[in-house]
Amino acid sequence: MKKSVLNIAVLIGLGLAAGTAHAVDQGLESCVRAIKNEKAGEFVKLEKLNVAGKAVYEFEIRDANLAEWEFMCDADSGKITEKESEVADPNSQAFKKNVKVTEEDAASVALKAVPGTIQEVEYEVEENGASSYEFDIVNDKAVETKVEVDAATGKVIETSIEEWEIGEESDEKR
């Protein structure tokens, strides 16, 4: 938890530098409270994303069983908008039970939507049990975009541009 406090302190410092400390502080604090009410664990990573023009925080939490969870939280309201678990292995039963699209085909879909180089892929299980691939793609201007592809249909679920990141990367696939 000490790491979480340090990361949040750095984030608030970034907000001060941007001149929007109060708004950042309120949204961030509301998100942290909401997530703590949902899941106990250590905050390991925080990203600020732009999802269709809306500011969203993506928190990564590691629970006592070392399972990783992602929470998407509206940066203005502090409300959780999405919760999903991550699995390290695409062959995990929770992930592969819904997979109809290969990782390679999903990667092609993601790269067609956002051209660039795939830097990371995560295997996610949505709150409703659906599986998805999340690709971090960096373009030639060094902008990172996350493209989430449904593992059953091969359709893009969500695209978001990363504005900044604080914390450690989990076990990632490159």
Results as ranks from 00 to 15, higher is better:
I157A: 10
I80T: 10
V114W: 01
W69D: 02
E148D: 11
Q119L: 08
A17D: 10
I166T: 06
L111Y: 08
L66S: 01
E163P: 00
K39W: 00
N91Q: 11
S85T: 08
K83T: 10
S132Q: 15
G15A: 07
T20Q: 13
L6N: 06
S160M: 06
G154P: 11
L111F: 05
V44F: 03
I61M: 03
I35R: 14
D150M: 04
E84W: 05
K96Q: 11
K100F: 03
S108T: 08
N98Y: 11
V156N: 14
T81C: 00
E124T: 10
D74N: 15
A151Y: 09
V51E: 12
L6C: 03
G27M: 03
E172P: 14
E84P: 01
E104K: 14
V5M: 04
L14W: 01
D171F: 06
E144S: 15
E120D: 10
S131P: 15
K97T: 08
D74G: 11
W164R: 00
E70Y: 08
G129L: 09
V99N: 08
K100P: 09
V99T: 07
A52E: 10
K83E: 13
E47G: 14
K141I: 04
I118E: 05
A52Y: 05
E38F: 01
H22K: 12
S85R: 14
N139E: 06
F135C: 12
S170K: 02
E58A: 07
K112N: 13
S132G: 15
V5T: 05
T117Q: 12
V143H: 10
A40M: 00
R62Y: 03
D171K: 15
C73Q: 02
E47F: 04
G78P: 01
T20R: 12
G129H: 09
G129V: 05
Q93A: 11
V143A: 12
I35H: 11
R62S: 11
I118D: 07
S170F: 00
D76Q: 13
E82S: 15
R62N: 01
G41Y: 00
S92T: 04
K79A: 08
N37E: 14
E124W: 01
D25H: 14
A75W: 04
L49R: 14
V125D: 01
D76S: 07
L11Y: 07
V125K: 04
S4G: 13
L46N: 12
G41E: 02
M72S: 13
V51K: 13
A18H: 13
E127P: 00
E120P: 10
S77V: 02
M72G: 13
E42N: 06
C31P: 05
E70Q: 13
A130K: 14
K112F: 05
D140Q: 11
E58T: 03
A40G: 06
V44K: 09
F135V: 04
K39P: 00
